[in-house]
Amino acid sequence: MANPTKMRASLKDGVTEVRALMQHEMENGRRKDETGNIVPAWYITEFKVEHNGKVVLDGEFGTSVSKNPYLVFRIKGGKAGDKVSLSWVDNRGDKRFDEVEVG
């Protein structure tokens, strides 16, 4: 089971700024371990962000996104108590869904 995405959504000047840290190794499939074997590619391929159940952002990752992908984005409007969720799926089919309230 994947570790939870750390997320904070804060309202400022009519914009909800979200900072999200997904916890994932993001192996690019080219790195070798101590014994010289290639570590197989293992990375988040898609993610989706919803604001009160409506998709506001979605995207795809390749293998060049850093370990523990970190994103900052800004939702127009929003108010305290609104729900912001982030879900992702990786190339092994593992997935994660996390939700926070706008503070």
Partner: peptide, 12 residues
Amino acid sequence: EGLEGFITARIK
């Protein structure tokens, strides 16, 4: 449309 044209990410 509900999002500002702004994104920060970390890449390799």
